[in-house]
Structure formats: C-alpha cells, structure tokens
Amino acid sequence: MDTIITAKEWASASDGGQPPALLDIRYRPGGPPGLPQYEAGHIPGAVFVDLETALAGPAGPRGRHPLPDLAEFGAAMRRAGVRSDRPVVVYDDGLGWAAARAWWMLRWAGHPDVRVLDGGLAAWTAWGGRLTAEVAPVAEGDFEPEPGALPLLDADGAAQLARRGLLLDARAGERYRGEVEPLDAVAGHVPGAVSAPTTGNVTADGCFRPAGELAERFAALGASGGAEVGVYCGSGVSAAQQVLALAIAGIPASLYVGSWSEWSSDPGRPVATGPQPG
C-alpha cells in the first residue's frame, strides 16, 4: 500500500514534468485555523484542503468528524486538482494526524496512489525546502470517489472486533484510562480495546519510525499471527495516523471513523476505565 514519501523524494518527484498533486492539510483541534498558516507560507504547488469541511461531515451523533458527503468530498478533491491517474502527496505540520486522514479518505475512496510527506512541513524545511505565499491556479481534477477500498468499522463492528481481534485506542493513555476527557462527555474506552497512543509511532522529529520498529511495537500490542486489527481515537483523525503506521509495518487495519466521540454519545454503549488488564 502506498504510504509515505521523504522530503528528498518529494523534491525529486516535483522537479519537472507533471508532479503529484500536493495537498496542505494543516489542522489542529481547537485551532489555529490552517488556512491563514497556508497563506503565510506553504510548499510550492500545494493546495490547501480544510479537514473540517472537505474531509469530514458536520459533527453530530456519528461523531465529531464523521465521513463527509461523498459528492462534496469528490468535488473538494477535484477543486484541489486530484486526478485518478495522478499520484497525490499530503502533508500537515503536526504528527501526521490530519495528513493521514486525507491519505485514508482518498485511499478508502479508491485513489490508487497517495502518500504522506514523512515529518510534514518541519521535515521539508529541515531538508532545506523553501516555502512560498504564492497561490498558483490549479487545473480541475477528475477524481470520482468509489468507496470501499479500505476497511471501515461502525460502532457495532468495533465492539465485535474488540472481542474477536485487536482494537487499538490511539488516544493518549490518560484519556484511555478515563483520567481526563477534554472533548467528549464521557471518559474511558471501548471495553476490550488496547491502549496504543499515536506518539509511539513517530520519532522526536515527527517522522515515522522504521517499518521494523513499528512492526515490533504492534506485535507487542497483539497485532501478530494474522490477528484482525482495528483502530479508533477521539474522532477518527489521529486513528488514521495509526492505520498509516500499521500500513508501514505491513499490517492491514480497519478505521472506526466515529470513534470515541460517537461511542460515548450513545448511553447504551458500555464504557471501561482504568488500565488494560495485565
């Protein structure tokens, strides 16, 4: 599966000819907004894509970042110049959460070649890449979503997977244990889920750990012997980074997009707290 590309590789891919479409997915929960940051300086050729409006639907019973309307998602991707026969590279300025959400959405919707810029904007500037405030015109793309290329979980599916396979909780450990809950009404985790914070997937510079290290990490958590794996987080954003890390390690995984924000809004769903058993 297409996964990541380094800053050096991107520089080569974008030098001459028709380079991959480049999408800037800067987003932070609670702000600051990504568009002003993009306008102040971005990788040349990048098009800004807003996670809240293009990569997610309105918040509600299905969670804070449910799947967007497919027609609206497809239109947003075409405006950004995404074509079915042209590779796509996405980046953000964090731990790869927002970029991975774009990667997952495009791959799930049938695009065959999408990669995340490893380390994001920081890796690009550290390599010596320049930024620009120029917003160049982009030719309309032709991408039409055909969903189903990657596995997807709903709440019932996540509950079942926690019993028969491995359901990873990508949030910080204290949120998993129910010690704090800054965003949702109920603290805790899906019963049977295993804590696996996304910070463990990257090095201090924000780049993904080597595939072998990631494979060892996930094997220690139970992703071995052909175990079926799924991932959730607070609202299906950071969990996409975990799915990407699993893909780098060669482990297919399903994403529970509604995640804890959907699960905890249903009073009929059980909630577990405290550390995971032994």
Rank of each mutant, 00 (worst) to 15 (best):
M1T: 11
T3C: 05
I5T: 07
I5H: 00
T6M: 03
A11C: 08
D15Q: 12
L22H: 00
L22W: 01
R26N: 00
G30M: 09
G31L: 08
P33E: 14
G34F: 04
G34V: 09
L35G: 00
Q37E: 15
Q37A: 14
E39G: 13
A40G: 15
G41E: 01
G41W: 01
P44H: 08
F48R: 04
F48H: 12
L51M: 11
T53Q: 11
T53E: 12
L55E: 04
L55T: 03
L55W: 05
A56P: 06
G57N: 07
A59P: 07
P61Y: 08
G63H: 00
P66E: 05
L67E: 10
D69W: 12
L70G: 13
A71Q: 15
G74K: 10
M77L: 11
A80V: 07
G81K: 00
G81N: 06
S84Y: 11
S84A: 14
S84I: 14
V88T: 10
Y91I: 01
D92I: 03
G96V: 04
W97D: 14
A98D: 02
A100E: 01
W104N: 00
V114A: 04
L117A: 07
G119Q: 04
G119V: 10
A122T: 02
A123R: 09
A123L: 10
A126C: 05
G128P: 05
G128M: 08
L131Y: 05
A133E: 13
A136C: 04
A136Q: 11
G141P: 08
D142G: 11
D142N: 10
F143W: 08
P145W: 02
P145E: 07
P145V: 03
L150I: 07
L150N: 04
L152I: 15
D156M: 10
D156W: 13
G157D: 09
A159Q: 15
Q160W: 08
Q160E: 15
L161E: 02
A162T: 03
A162S: 09
R164G: 00
L166K: 04
D169H: 01
A170S: 11
A170Y: 05
E174S: 12
R175V: 11
L183Q: 12
D184A: 09
D184N: 06
A187Y: 09
G188K: 02
H189W: 03
S195K: 14
T199N: 11
G200Q: 09
N201T: 13
V202D: 05
A204N: 03
C207L: 13
F208E: 07
P210A: 15
P210D: 15
P210M: 13
A211Q: 09
E213G: 12
E213K: 07
E216G: 14
F218Q: 00
F218R: 01
A220L: 05
L221W: 04
A223K: 04
G226Q: 08
E228K: 00
E228M: 06
V229N: 01
G230M: 02
C233A: 03
G234T: 03
V237P: 01
S238D: 00
A240Y: 01
A240P: 04
L244K: 02
A245M: 03
I248N: 01
G250F: 04
G258M: 09
S259F: 02
W260C: 10
S261Q: 02
E262D: 03
E262N: 02
W263Y: 05
W263C: 02
S264L: 10
S265K: 03
G268R: 12
R269G: 04
A272K: 06
G274Y: 04
G278C: 13
G278T: 13
